[in-house]
């Protein structure tokens, strides 16, 4: 009796052991397949980007950049923590500017327009010089719609009288539509003016405010560090490919003035104009400035001299059938 039970136990232990081993094997092979897949798919090695010599001695600037990045995003506690932990310092004025920005942006996110409006009114002249008072109008517009959506038509119309008249010249169409909306005050959501409501106008105003505020104080509105890292992330694969080619020529790309190949980049992160003569591929410089031919095509001055035999002969534009002489070309500025 005991013996039977015991031999059964022995058998079942053996079975269980086998089963567990079997499962382990399955799991292990799946895991190793996964590991191999990771090795195969994610194969670029970040250390092959090139040597770090060009960045030596910039550690302090990097810390500063990180600190500023926190300020631009309103993460003041993180900036303070970093200042405390490391030995980095940022100018108090920079911090103050961003603190003020977020004192306005935070209420704006909660749909409180008052701080933003009073800032815009205090800086009317500055804003007018830049974008034709777009921000001020956008803020008044939201305030009016807000009053309207509470159902207080009289207050809304009074508000419109007090503030919209100054914008009649530039924003007449919009003001007409806004006044039309007052007819539907109690049921704006189901009116033809429903499109004026929703989150998007608020988000737009937030962005616009940020841009205008930063422009007014001469601050970048996007964190420069964010832009650089985002661009860097998309550029690293091309740079790795490039540096592998360059390394076979036994030079480090970081030791040169210019990257050996062009890296694709989006228009959104082009900040300066670069003129490249389409004929000679030389850059435009004060010595070799861009020249516009009468047909409108632009080439470098040196190419112009070559094509015209130093202003001796008329020549055909390289890009269209029209003919011109060098003296007809005009220096252009970008």
């Amino acid at each position: 009796m005991t013996n039977n039970a015991l031999s059964a136990l022995s058998r079942r232990t053996q079975e269980a052991h086998c089963q567990v081993l079997e499962r382990h094997k399955t799991f292990q092979s799946a895991l190793s397949r996964y590991g191999k897949l990771l090795d195969k798919r994610y194969r670029l090695d970040l250390d092959s980007v090139g040597d770090a010599a060009a960045l030596h001695g910039t550690e302090q600037s990097m810390l500063e950049a990180v600190c500023l990045h926190f300020l631009v995003h309103g993460q003041f506690d993180l900036a303070d923590k970093l200042i405390q932990e490391s030995v980095v310092d940022v100018p108090a004025a920079a911090r103050e500017n961003y603190v003020q920005l977020f004192e306005i942006l935070t209420p704006l996110k909660e749909r409180n327009l008052a701080p933003a409006l009073s800032w815009a009114q205090a800086n009317t002249q500055l804003l007018a010089d830049r974008t034709g008072r777009q921000l001020e109008f956008a803020l008044h517009r939201l305030q009016y719609l807000h009053l309207l959506s509470t159902g207080d038509v009289q207050a809304a119309v009074a508000y419109a009288r007090a503030h919209f008249s100054r914008f009649g010249f530039e924003h007449l169409k919009d003001i007409q539509r806004l006044m039309g909306a007052s007819l539907y005050a109690s049921r704006l959501e189901s009116s033809p003016y429903a499109g004026m409501l929703g989150d998007q106008p608020w988000l737009d105003v937030e962005r616009l405010f940020r841009e205008e505020y930063c422009a007014a104080l001469g601050l970048p509105s996007d964190s420069p560090l964010y832009t650089s890292i985002a661009v860097g992330t998309t550029a690293i694969p091309s740079i790795i490919k490039m540096s592998q080619v360059v390394r076979t020529n036994r030079t480090e790309w970081t030791q040169q003035d210019e990257l050996p190949v062009s890296i694709p980049m989006p228009d959104a992160v082009r900040f300066h104009s670069t003129f490249v003569c389409p004929v000679s591929k030389d850059y435009g410089t004060p010595e070799n400035p861009p020249m516009r031919l009468p047909c409108g095509h632009v080439i470098g001055h040196e190419s112009l001299m070559k094509l015209s035999n130093h202003d001796q002969t008329r020549f055909k534009c390289p890009y269209c059938p029209s003919e011109a002489s060098a003296s007809q070309a005009m220096r252009v500025y970008f």
Binding site: A54, L55, T58, Q60, S61, M62, E64, A65, L68, A215, G218, P220, S221, D222, P224, L225, T227, S228, W253, T254, Q256, D257, E258, L259, P260, V261, S262, I263, M265, D267, R270, F271, H272, S273, T274, F275, V276, P278, K281, Y283, V298, F334
Partner: peptide
């Protein structure tokens, strides 16, 4: 141009010794 990250402190210091991008075509803003 005022928004260019390479032109503002402190990134300008970091970029000082780096090579600049190569352009094969004009990009005029």
């Amino acid at each position: 141009a005022a928004q260019c990250p390479v032109c503002v402190a402190p990134l300008d210091v970091i970029a000082a010794r780096l090579p600049r991008a190569h352009h094969e075509h004009s990009s005029i803003i």
